[in-house]
């Protein structure tokens, strides 16, 4: 990772922070699936003033009670590295990997989108859904529910278009992300820094 000399990360140093290298990072965190583990992770972010843009959690290995938490957060590199170390010292955390550092990770999200309308608007919604590879999972005479899977930015675009096509409501899962190539999280280098 990059360390920029002379940059401060003190909570007490109240000078304007340089926004220059702030960007969003996708962290993959392997944890014991035990009561309170999510509260520990979320509490760490709120308690230390880090932000969470998206958080997804689900058990991935039932036998060994392991869950994978995918967190999207923003910050400058030293802050991101501090977040990773803070996560790393939680007792139930096995591993923290920064998929953004690892480069070009696979990031997917699923959304369910309900639109309502008749006539031209309804036809337009259907045409756009086809163009975006969204599936129809429910239909009535004046409504559709589309299911779309894709990179968050693609979903953002589709949702944006649906606003003009009678968007009623939507639900998004948050991010699921993996690195490319043959290595899994257990063989990836641990908390970098």
């Amino acid at each position: 990772m990059m360390i920029v000399a002379g940059q401060s990360q003190s909570a007490y140093f109240l000078e304007e922070e340089l926004p220059s290298t702030e960007r969003s990072h996708t962290l993959s965190v392997l944890v014991d699936n035990e009561p309170g583990v999510l509260a520990r992770v979320v509490g760490l972010f709120s308690g230390r003033g880090y932000n969470i843009e998206s958080l997804t959690v689900s058990e991935i290995e039932h036998a060994s009670h392991m869950s994978r938490i995918t967190i999207v957060t923003t910050g400058r590199p030293p802050v991101i590295s501090q977040i990773m170390h803070q996560l790393g010292r939680l007792v139930p955390v096995h591993k923290v990997v920064n998929l953004t550092w690892a480069g070009d990770a696979l990031e997917r999200e699923l959304a369910l989108i309900k639109v309502c309308g008749k006539g031209e608007i309804r036809d337009e919604a259907l045409r756009l859904a086809q163009a975006f590879n969204a599936r129809i999972v429910d239909a009535t005479l004046d409504s559709y529910v589309f299911e779309i899977t894709g990179a968050p930015a693609d979903i953002d675009r589709f949702v944006g278009l649906m606003k003009d096509c009678g968007l009623v409501e939507l639900a998004r899962t948050g991010l699921a992300a993996l690195s490319r190539g043959r290595n899994g999280i257990t063989s990836a280098p641990a908390v970098a820094g």
Binding site: I3, V4, S8, Q9, P78, S81, G193
Partner: peptide, 9 residues
């Protein structure tokens, strides 16, 4: 490790 580069690089 979290003590390192927390306040001073």
């Amino acid at each position: 490790p979290s003590s390192i580069n927390k306040n001073v690089v």
